[in-house]
């Protein structure tokens, strides 16, 4: 199985950043970093924008974050209809990266508002799919 294992329902199967899946397997969320200039990317990318010839390495993120905004989706694409309604969020992680991710159903919806502290954690779906969400 390729990268379509990422997410609640993945669309893209072929990519250079497949190693992300091995980190998720271990319960870790990882970014990529340019070995030359140190610029770090999340979501991970395979090439540095500034040093296109240099190699990248993987670094594990702590996942601490704060919610910027969210929505509750009632009308969903076919693959997601069994889980409807569900929450989607945008958060800023402690190192300044932004992440788009589901908000875990364990979060009390009434407490949810921009600015709320949430952690990005690895989650596993029923089809052995892997992703992260905010909890």
């Amino acid at each position: 199985m390729g990268f379509e294992k990422f997410g609640r329902f993945g669309y893209v199967s072929q990519t250079k950043i497949n190693p992300l899946l091995s980190y998720l397997e271990k319960g870790q969320i990882a970014a990529t970093r340019c070995k030359k200039c140190g610029r770090t990317y999340f979501p991970p990318r395979a090439e540095c924008l500034d040093d296109r010839q240099s190699a990248i390495e993987w670094v594990v993120l702590d996942g601490k974050g704060s919610l910027i905004t969210f929505t509750k989706v009632f009308f969903a694409p076919p693959a997601f209809q069994p889980e409807t309604p569900y929450l989607l969020g945008l958060a800023e992680l402690s190192n300044g990266f932004r992440v788009f991710a589901p908000v875990s159903p364990s979060v009390d919806e009434k407490q949810l508002k921009p600015g709320k502290e949430l952690n990005l954690k690895v989650a596993r779906g029923s089809r052995d799919n892997l992703f992260y969400w905010l909890e």
Binding site: G7, V73, F80
Partner: peptide, 10 residues
């Protein structure tokens, strides 16, 4: 489609 659609965006 790589980083956001897999979570059920509309």
């Amino acid at each position: 489609v790589m980083w956001e659609s897999p979570f059920g965006t509309t």
